[in-house]
């Protein structure tokens, strides 16, 4: 009797040890605020951009189609259905997330989102949101995803992704970096259209009030700007708040179980579709 009990305990112990060894590395956490992640979970922006540049464009002519989402923060149940829905769409080149990948600014949250979004058939790209900067989040975002301000060009369309979360820096007058934005907008060699993607729009109280004017003026002056895409508000909207010819579109948050497909062609043509999932 005691003998069988001991052998049972021994088996259970062996099984536990084996399981712990297999999953141990991921579980062996120094702090929820550490930025330690396996190589597969790091530099995701660079990896997704490499994938994007390597993939042949699925749409003909000068037409480009991509999915526009935002605010995945702590809506893990919605990611699976979103991925399934996007994977059924035709002609999509990429998916973009307009910030707030995480809710608490923790590295593990960003990994949870990537664990699910990596099942997309297309590459996905992100811009940093305010929730991604709480605690040690800014460091975690840079480790898991990459730079806070960056650009990429696909099908002669220049995407400019910029950190506009001014409140996270205590409105220090440097975020968003308007000088950098102007430089990117001025560089139009080989560019047919420009798209700016950020998290906090200039109309929001979390955007540095001192930078609203220079930021919106830079956009209004941009020679080939198609629209300004942002998240933060969680509900979809499209408007021209500054009556300066610049269209501002706010994404659906993941919790709304809807996303937007943007199809762009020509110099300034676009079609917007809302998809429920």
């Amino acid at each position: 009797m005691i003998f069988t009990l001991i052998s049972l305990i021994r088996q259970a112990a062996l099984l536990t040890v084996a399981t712990l060894l297999l999953t141990g590395c991921e579980l062996f956490e120094f702090s929820p605020n550490d930025v330690r992640a396996p190589a597969a979970d790091r530099d995701l922006t660079a990896k997704n951009l490499a994938r994007l540049q390597a993939q042949p464009k699925p749409t003909g002519g000068d037409t480009l189609r991509f999915v526009f989402t935002g605010d995945s923060q702590r809506f893990y149940e919605e990611i699976g259905p979103l991925v399934e829905s996007v994977n059924r769409q035709r002609g999509i080149s990429a998916l973009v997330v307009a910030g707030d990948i995480a809710d608490f600014g923790l590295r593990r949250e960003m990994q949870w989102v990537n664990d699910r979004l990596r099942h997309l058939k297309v590459p996905y790209l992100t811009v940093i949101g305010n929730h991604d900067q709480v605690a040690n989040g800014r460091q975690a975002y840079q480790e898991i995803f990459g730079p806070l301000n960056y650009t990429f060009t696909y099908d002669r369309t220049r995407f400019i992704l910029i950190d506009t979360n001014s409140r996270e820096y205590g409105f220090n007058g440097k975020v968003p970096d308007v000088g950098w934005l102007q430089q990117q907008l001025a560089d139009t060699v080989g560019i047919r259209r420009q798209i700016v993607l950020c998290h906090v729009p200039p109309s929001n109280e979390d955007f540095d009030p001192a930078l609203v004017k220079p930021f919106t003026e830079a956009l209004a002056k941009a020679p080939r700007l198609l629209f300004h895409l942002n998240g933060h508000a969680h509900s979809f909207s499209i408007s021209e708040p500054y009556a300066d010819g610049v269209t501002y579109i706010n994404s659906f948050a993941f919790e709304k179980r809807q996303y937007v497909i943007l199809t762009v062609w020509g110099a300034d043509q676009f079609k917007l579709e809302k998809v429920a999932f």
């Binding site: 062996f28 929820p32 893990y76 608490f104």
Partner: peptide, 26 residues
């Protein structure tokens, strides 16, 4: 084998969206 309050909140609000092993620490 442990977890923390923010991981528990994440799991509690995503019962089918996160696995228990997602929120464990060793």
């Amino acid at each position: 084998l442990g977890t923390n309050d923010l991981y528990v909140v994440s799991k509690a609000t995503n019962l089918s969206g996160l696995k228990v092993t997602d929120i464990l620490t060793l």
